[in-house]
Design a protein around this nucleic acid. Structure first.
Lengths: 362, 362
DNA sequence: CTGAAAGCGCTTACAG
DNA sequence: CTGAAAGCGCTTACAG
């Protein structure tokens, strides 16, 4: 009675994979009820007798039945699956975000289909197509690009989607983002307060909303603190580590190098640290360094890195909440999370910085 | 002709999500061919005329058709989806592994359904059930537990599965693991060569194969180098950061504390670093430190951490290769990847360590 | 509370 | 090369 042999068309080639798939039909037969009744028991429909429930449960147990989610969702159009597309899993921030989203989704009975765009629009679009084809119930997206690719399909098809961390201009979807203004303003004020007047900035790409927002916030903060504005102090990176290193090299080779540097995300900050080490510039002594994103590793560096912190747990949880509301037909408001400066040793430059490392190179 | 209104049973409640789902029927109608022909064109079946191909392609484009993967796999029993279940996404090693697996899978046209066990067997089993229900074509698993849970279902159902990084005793599945013996032997010899005789070890859990393997390798290396064996020098952690910190505290409070410490994975090493900082013990001077796993952050610490390195890219790629072979009905051999010591400043203790930090505490 | 039957969107022999 | 039809494993009104 177990493993009822299916009319298996395979020519007995031994290559008989998955013969052992037990279906709801097998369960129904074993329990002595109809398929409909078995289905009702399985889906928790109250219109079932205690007797059926017991017999079906026993059969499920005995046959080790796992309902075919494909078939189920083909009828019910719900897959209980959420697609999460991040920009770069190896970026600790997104790994933490993936974890937060996954835990929050799990609580609501959803599994996460994780995609990794590698900060590239073509890979994002490829995954987006996969997610659409897999008929995920909704998508949480840290977007790439200008919204002229597959993102349009998402909207057209009415697939519940929310943006996380980033947004796309002209695409009106609920989002969870960080208000970078407050944290960056604090950071610049903190540095200016110590006498720094030349604060370098390693910016993210201006094609990405967080890259733009943080850059705007930096410019604003420079102006607010009446610091001289010098375009040479800004290096445009790509949110990845190598560009952080490149940025440091360029900035430190300036005729008038900065005495403090702000990096717009954690991989670039890591790259900056590596290059500062290589160039023999002592962080917290020769140069102050502050990073956007709070990663546990930053606290382990010596000196520990000052960071602009925002809660990745809150972000992940909020994104799931928002998406669930959209799936339920709601139109939730976007959420903006706060950012906050955490001062550590890397930006505590006791000696007047101008005199320590501001020495002209020629 | 676009969006042909489906016989939509929704009571016009406005809650008409996904009306706009276009099916292969719509495509066939728009292209003026039968559903069968449309299907053949879509799946690249050569038995199609150039004319049909063109008309179908045009219809697909115009209607923005995305085939329903659920329905497709219901017939073909292939989902083109691989489940990857890692122990902890926030662990940089596994994030890197996820990335490597995902890239390798993408090359073969597979999407990855990523699960995160959080180093817990119950969460692993829950995800495993989801993956089975989703009918993934195969599973790449960094396993938890003793193999008496859902893993048995995997075997019974013949679902193609390979182990990665870890294995489970008594479960015979192809695997990709690291040979820890060589790297750990090198590390201990390197430390012993500098005069260290008391080498502490922060072990992983003995319920996990990598925890056991590395511990065995450590014991072996201690014996090989004719170092005194002292059980007090071993602290058993759980592969997570907090236990690395706890381990350092315990070991440094010994009457005869170690002058060198080896941590069995990167999160525990990070925890160890944090605690050494807090206790004012200078890495590379007061104490030597070596970590298993090569994470980019380790190179950024000052002093940079010596590590036992193994290639996570190779591991991810090999796991996908193996799984693909299993899916194709093969029975591939397991793969064991090498490990190698990389010496950096954290384990270069020029002064005779015994005299520097081996001073008795009482 | 239960069974028989239709149907979700595809694929795939089967004839032609 | 193509169409008509069966069927993958479920769910869900419809009667009873």
């Amino acid at each position: 009675m177990e493993t009822i042999p299916k009319k298996n068309c395979s020519t007995d080639h031994e290559e008989v994979r998955r013969v052992n798939t037990v279906t709801i039909k097998d369960v129904a037969a074993a329990a002595g009820v109809s398929v409909g009744t078995a289905s009702r028991v399985l889906s928790g429909n109250p219109a079932t007798s205690a007797a059926s429930r017991e017999r079906v449960a026993a059969a499920v147990e005995r046959l080790d039945f796992h309902p075919n989610a494909q078939a189920r969702s083909l009828r019910s159009t719900r897959t209980r699956t959420i697609g999460l597309l991040v920009s770069d899993v190896r970026n600790q921030f997104f790994a933490d975000l993936a974890h937060a989203v996954e835990q929050a989704a799990l609580e609501h009975g959803y599994a996460i289909l994780l995609g990794n765009a590698n900060e590239r629009e073509d890979q994002q679009d490829r995954y987006l197509n996969t997610l659409i084809s897999q008929r995920v119930d909704g998508i949480i997206l840290a977007p790439q690009g200008d919204g002229n690719g597959v993102i349009r399909s998402l909207l057209r098809r009415g697939i519940p989607t929310v943006f996380v961390d980033r947004t796309v201009d002209g695409i009106d979807l609920p989002s969870v983002t960080t208000d970078s203004v407050h944290g960056i303003r604090q950071a610049v004020a903190h540095l200016a307060g110590q006498g720094h007047t030349r604060i370098g900035y390693i910016a993210g790409p201006q094609s990405i909303s967080t890259g733009r927002d943080r850059f705007t916030a930096y410019n604003q903060a420079i102006a607010d603190n009446r610091l001289p504005k010098d375009p040479a102090l800004v290096y445009f990176g790509d949110f990845q580590a190598a560009s952080g290193s490149a940025g440091v090299r360029v900035l430190l080779n300036l005729d008038q190098p900065p005495t403090a540097i702000l990096a717009a995300d954690s991989p670039m900050a890591a790259g900056a640290v590596a290059m500062l080490h290589r160039m023999g510039s002592r962080i917290g002594t020769d140069i102050a360094l502050v990073a956007f994103d709070d990663i546990e590793w930053f606290a382990l560096l010596q000196p520990a890195l000052s960071v602009i912190s925002h809660s990745v747990e809150d972000m992940g949880r909020a994104a799931v909440d928002l998406l669930l509301q959209v799936i339920d037909g709601g139109t939730p408001e976007s959420i903006v999370l706060p950012s906050e400066l955490i001062v550590r040793a890397s930006s505590s430059t006791p000696n007047h910085p101008g005199s320590v490392s501001g020495l002209r190179k020629n």
